[in-house]
Structure formats: C-alpha cells, structure tokens
Simulated scan of single mutants.
Amino acid sequence: MRFKLNKIQQKWNESNKTDFSDLKAVFLNCTLKKSPELSHTEGLLGMSQTIMEANGVSTELIRVVDYEVAYGVQLDMTEHGWDKDDWPAIQEKVMAANILVIGTPIWLGEKSSIATKVIERLYGFSGELNKEGQYAYYGKAGGCLITGNEDGVKHCAMNILYSLQHLGYTIPPQADAGWIGEAGPGPSYLDEGSGGLENEFTTRNTTFMAWNLMHLAFMLKNGFPAHGNIRSEWDKSDHDHPNPEYR
C-alpha cells in the first residue's frame, strides 16, 4: 500500500542528499487478517514504506499470517516436530535487511499473537554470530508501528522495542508511532471519517521514525563496532570468575 505524501514529507524527500540506495528494509505486518482482507496496520506501515522507497531504500512488506509459521524458538521447527515452517525463508529476508519494522494491531491492550510469535522466532536466531563474532542482529536498525481502537500504543511499542534491542538491534530516536481511534468498536485507521490519515501526530511520528531508521541504518552500514562485544572471543578466553561461581 503506497501513500500520497504531504508537502513537508515530499520536501524532505526532494532535499535529501544522503544515498540510501544500498539499504534494505523489511516490514512485518502482524495483523490477524489474511490477505486480501484490508489491514489498517498495513496502511500505517505503508506510509513508512513509501518514504523509504522515495529515498532509494529497497523494501518488502510481509503479512506474516499468510504463511505457515510454526511456534517455537528454534531456527527451523520442522526439525522439532512440525510438518511445515515458513519462517526460515522470512528469517533470510530479515537478515538481508538493514532495517526491520514490526507492525501490530492492539488486542486486549497487547500486541497481537502474531507479533508475539514473530518476536519468539526472531529470538531463535539471536544466538547466531556474524562474521565479526558478534550476535547476528548487530548493525541492524529496528522500529515499530501500532494501530487499534483501544489504549496500548506505548505499552506495545515498549515491549517490541525492548525485545528488538535485547536481540541485538539498534533503536534510533523516535522509533515508534501509532494510531488509535475512539475507544471501542468504530472506524479504524484507513476507514473514511476515522481521522487516521489526517492525524498530524501519527503522520509526524511515522515520518520521523522512517527517517531516523534510514539515518541509523546508513551509519551502521559497515556494522556495529566490534570491540567489547565479541561473543566468540569471550567464549574462547579463560575467566578468573566464571559467572556461576562469582559472588
């Protein structure tokens, strides 16, 4: 879904002097609705995606519920009793990207069950190491977008952004945005008359998030500095006080 950007968004795109063309971004839409049903979360993700594409970033949006993603925290759950698992192919795309944006609706004040599953599957790869011997997600930028008709935007964002940084992602300033309509049943983000598309606060914060993710990913193109965080080097060394015995 592509957006018609407003005047300030277009101005910033046109005046940008940074070459983001070698960056890739993956957007994981954690809606509960299978395609082609309308996803309001995908609508908000589309604004960020449009900004990035206008600045040369290669993007891909994946609606996770359209795939057979197994539960678990291993790299490939077909090796742990599941008949099918589409996650390894999604994981490859995540690892090839410089930027990851997770989008989720709010249900009962929490991120969706699909978003929880995505975090668990991302966790299953977090022990892998990159060529520098760091954890594999080092050098990647992460953010999130939230939609719904109930309170919980900041709660969901705190949970997702904490999870991403714990796995190794770097989080830029203003790395989240969201929109919630009137509490209870009613118009959602893309619905006519909802006010979602016209909401300046949501549009501004989504724009800031997109730009800050691009800026950070550009700074991290050559990786996160590999000093003081090399797991492989730590494991090979002798310690005076191994953790279990240190008091």
Rank of each mutant, 00 (worst) to 15 (best):
M1N: 12
K7Q: 14
I8S: 15
I8D: 15
Q10M: 14
Q10A: 13
W12Y: 14
N13R: 09
S15M: 02
D19R: 00
F20L: 01
S21F: 01
K24W: 02
K24H: 06
L28A: 04
N29R: 04
N29T: 02
K33T: 08
K34E: 12
P36L: 05
E37I: 01
E37W: 13
L38A: 05
H40N: 15
T41M: 13
E42W: 04
G43C: 14
L44D: 07
G46H: 07
M47V: 07
S48I: 03
T50N: 12
N55P: 01
S58M: 05
E68N: 14
V69L: 09
A70I: 00
A70E: 10
G72R: 07
G72C: 04
Q74T: 05
M77I: 01
T78V: 03
E79Y: 09
G81Q: 13
K84S: 11
D85L: 03
D86A: 13
P88H: 10
E92S: 09
V94S: 12
A96P: 02
V101Y: 14
G103K: 14
T104K: 09
G109M: 02
K111D: 02
S113I: 08
T116I: 08
K117P: 05
L129T: 14
L129A: 08
Q134H: 10
Y135S: 07
G139C: 01
A141T: 06
G143I: 01
N149H: 11
N149K: 13
G152S: 10
H155C: 03
N159C: 08
N159P: 02
N159T: 10
I160Q: 07
L161I: 01
L167N: 11
Y169D: 12
I171D: 09
P172A: 06
Q174E: 08
G178N: 04
G181N: 02
G181Q: 01
E182Y: 09
E182G: 03
E182M: 07
G186F: 07
P187A: 15
S188Q: 15
Y189L: 05
L190K: 08
S194N: 11
G195W: 08
L197V: 08
E198K: 09
N199D: 15
A210V: 00
N212D: 11
N212K: 06
M214N: 13
F218Y: 15
K221N: 11
P225C: 07
A226L: 00
G228L: 01
E233R: 12
W234P: 01
D235W: 10
P244T: 06
Y246W: 08
